[in-house]
């Protein structure tokens, strides 16, 4: 069951540098939330705190609470490994495991979480996940071929299949289409529409048209200047954000006056 994500008083640091300041937001379940804003405003940084991937970078840390299913994932004693099993992530560049076949790529996360899986269960899961990523028809005859042999757009959908194969509640996407051509981008956007039936999706994008196409709600991050922390300026229904935003900065940004 997808859960709402409640973020309270979240401050995100790289070492002593405060990168993102005081984020308070509720992300609705079974919806697509897009995060937009100029480069360096902290939207990807914020995204990475939602599955504790931020702290993978040496010196990086976050303070505040992020509640998923009523549990603060930054509470003492919470294992980031378990958080990441519940909150999947798709990256900017497609990153299938180069030494693995298409099939093994899809099963990679499952094999970590639950070492033993029967062959028939595995086959069913591979098919279901690849179908869920709209990739099944293209690869069903070459599941044992390397994942790196696919096109960029197919690789990204393979990464999505790999992510949803572990049945996360939330899927985070960090500019998932920025390395893809328009056709592949369309395929991923269609997929996002279908995926929100089952998952809570948060997507960072540089492309405002994309945000308006795929998301139900849109959040706008901005930064006052170099060296200043990024802030969540406004978050609202996507339609309202792109037609009648409450904040002047948002309006300037979406109308192309800066950024």
């Amino acid at each position: 069951m997808p859960q709402a994500i409640t973020v309270e008083d979240l401050n995100i640091y790289y070492g002593d540098f405060l990168a993102v300041e005081n984020v308070n937001v509720v992300i609705e379940p079974r919806s697509v939330t897009a995060l937009i804003g100029p480069s360096g405003c902290g939207k990807s940084t914020f995204l990475r705190t939602l599955n504790r991937m931020h702290e993978v970078i040496p010196g990086a840390r976050a303070e505040g609470t992020v509640e998923i299913e009523g549990q603060n994932i930054y509470a003492a004693g919470v294992d980031p490994v378990n958080v990441r099993r519940r909150v999947g992530m798709v990256f900017q560049k497609p990153n299938p495991f180069p030494t693995m076949s298409i099939r093994d790529n899809v099963l990679a996360g499952v094999k970590l979480n639950n070492k033993r899986i029967s062959k028939s269960d595995a086959d069913a899961l591979v098919e279901k996940s690849l179908k869920g990523a709209n990739l099944w028809n293209e690869v069903k005859d070459r599941l044992d071929k390397p994942g790196m042999g696919l096109s960029g757009g197919q690789q990204q959908r393979l990464c999505i299949a790999r992510t949803i194969a572990v049945r996360p509640e939330v899927v985070l996407m960090d500019e998932p289409c920025s390395a893809l051509d328009p056709i592949s981008t369309l395929a991923i956007e269609d997929l996002i529409h279908e995926m929100k039936e089952e998952f809570t999706i948060v997507i960072v994008t540089h492309n405002m048209q994309q945000a308006s196409r795929v998301s139900d709600r849109t959040g706008f991050f901005n930064i006052a200047g170099t060296g200043k922390p990024g802030k969540l300026i406004e978050i609202d229904d996507t339609e309202k954000m792109f037609t009648n935003p409450a904040n002047k900065q948002t309006e300037d940004y979406i109308s192309g006056r800066f950024g």
């Binding site: 991937m53 990441r84 999947g88 996360g109 790999r162 572990v166």
Partner: peptide, 8 residues
């Protein structure tokens, strides 16, 4: 990061 994000 791909592996870590899968919960490795």
């Amino acid at each position: 990061e791909a592996a870590l994000a899968l919960g490795a």
